[in-house]
Design a protein around this nucleic acid. Sequence first.
DNA 1: TCGATCCTGTAG
DNA 2: CTACAGGATCGA
Length: 269
Amino acid sequence: MPELPEVEAVCRKLRQEALGQTIVRARILRPRILGTQSVDEFERGVEGKRIEAIDRRAKHILIRCSNDAVIQVHLRMTGNLFAVPDVRFYPQETRAHFEFPEHRGILFTDPRALGRIQLHTSGEIKALLAGLGPEPLSDSFTPEWLLAAARQSRQPAKLFLMDQTRIAGLGNIYAAEALFRARIHPRRIMTRLTKPRLAGLHTSIVAVLQDALQSACKAYSSPGRFGEAEDFPVMVYDREGLPCKSCNRSIRRFVQGGRSTYYCPGCQK
DNA sequence: TCGATCCTGTAG
DNA sequence: CTACAGGATCGA
């Protein structure tokens, strides 16, 4: 699921249910999600901690606990993190769970198990995330900043947008959608974009993420289904061969940095 | 800058 | 069966 808007929605939901709770037990069901950290150490390190804050940085979820313990969660492609009334009943794709009193708690589910959970101190987290670019929905992301960054990058626009050290939190879908709104071809080299085009790109990035955040939050709070930004108006992503909603030309797909890129040959030159 | 890799599920 | 998946990292 996760790009910035979905991860942000997960965090907001989680805050309502988990803030102030004490983790009485933690269980890692798939050791690999910890990377090199040991299951015993992780579980012992988390047990008894109280959840004091839940932050997001790029696509990382940071569960800040008492005693300077921070649980860092990355959902990667198919991960999800959510509160449940009873952690004893969990679906088979569950990779970890955190139990509060009365059996309430949090599940980490991830069918592909590509997601990661790590336990760190706040200082370690700071160092680990130091290389990330600015948050695109924060004040630090300005048109001037984008201009400066673009002038020193020969990356194609799509790869630039997905580069977490440039801008934090965009992924394959919203990078493509932002470029469509800005009418920029995904292969365009950043240094070759004019100042007004970059101003437009800045606006498009913010608009796409805000729209997506809206629908992600809506999808998340609505009873029943959980997760997808279903009412987000996708213009190009996964629409190869379908007519552009704006100019009617056929949407194209090609591979860029090992990922599918979709664009409209009519709207994006 | 490409390709392989980590995993599992689903669509064709 | 193969291709591909909203991510990130590693080595050639």
